[in-house]
Amino acid sequence: MEPSELSRTPDGEIRNKTDILRDFQVSFFTMSRLLSFPWTFLEKDLESNKSSDLISDILKQTCLHSLCRKFPPSVRFRRLFLSELIRREAADCDPLDELYDALAEVVGAEDTAECYKSYLLPSGDAVSLLENVALISEGTTGLVTWEAALYLAEWALDHRQVFTGRTVLELGSGVGLSGITICRSCSPRRFVFSDCHPRVLQALRSNVELNGLTPPSVGVEEVDWTAASEEQLERIGADVVIAADVVYDPDIAGSLVKLLSRILRGSSPEVFVCSTVRNQETYGGFKQQLDQEGISHRVITDAVGRVFPYSRDGVIELIQLHTTAAQ
């Protein structure tokens, strides 16, 4: 292998050209920050080879890939990405026609409030989601994928036995990343996505269908934490309950805790809650309310395989819940 096809990361890991191309592809389809892309490897390759071959290969794995044709990232993101490739194109090489053709496609295109993000699984399959470009839209944060959902999905991929052959209920599913990943990779017997915001439920149903998941093994239900009936919970009959990024508002934490208490004292499922700890007071208050309801928790400290690109700078905590009597 040529030296130019190898690169060493800051922690000493050696990456080859195939790894770099996958890094570009994974980051592109999740619309990661452009600064996070492995541009240094590309620049070194251009310096040593004086060829646009690697740029051509990157294009084939991103803008010209069939996944981009079917589920394209936002127009603005593709425009910025292509501009960065052009900026780095070797000055003494012939211009790459397909690069400028791809840019021409998006220069005059109109951007929209929604776009697709695709999260590549270790199997090579992809979870494609229609998400909102704004973090908060239509009065909800549920139209985008948050870090705790990505972390929970990674943990699930490492612990598939927790979900295989079982009925899973997800509370606050949002756009569906964690649940769809579990459905595609962990073989649950039945999976029930849930939320309560009408617009989120609409987006959730669309994404579930988009990824080829259908009844009766998969369902989407409205579950209002303050009004869920015993009949609904018994009908679902969950063996496993999961929730990601649902502990961010102290005003609704109490309703969540009371619902979790009812679920745990009903069919006694395994319950996992994953949270990005943005406000220690809010998160601590949630745990305090768990204690008051007689629910204990165990922090799961297993390392997870890094599958999806996202910021890992913040504190993400996964806990398993138990009724005190069950311990």
Rank of each mutant, 00 (worst) to 15 (best):
E2C: 11
L6F: 14
P10F: 10
P10D: 06
K17D: 06
K17T: 12
T30C: 06
F37G: 02
F41S: 04
S52A: 14
S56E: 13
S56M: 11
I58C: 06
I58E: 08
T62R: 01
L67N: 13
R69F: 15
K70M: 11
F71H: 13
S74Y: 07
R78Q: 15
R88M: 07
A91N: 10
P95M: 03
L103F: 11
E105S: 12
V106L: 05
G108M: 01
E114K: 12
K117L: 11
S128T: 10
S128F: 08
L129F: 05
S137F: 13
T140R: 05
V144R: 03
T145P: 01
L152V: 01
A156N: 02
L157S: 01
T164K: 15
E170W: 03
G176C: 04
T181L: 07
R190V: 09
F193H: 04
V200N: 04
V208H: 07
L210G: 04
V223E: 05
A227T: 11
S229Y: 07
E231T: 10
E231Q: 13
Q232K: 11
L233K: 07
I236K: 02
V240M: 06
V240Y: 09
V241E: 09
I242G: 04
A243C: 09
V247H: 04
I263K: 03
R265N: 12
V271F: 02
V273C: 06
Q280L: 15
E281T: 12
G284W: 02
V307T: 09
S311Y: 00
E317L: 06
T324R: 10
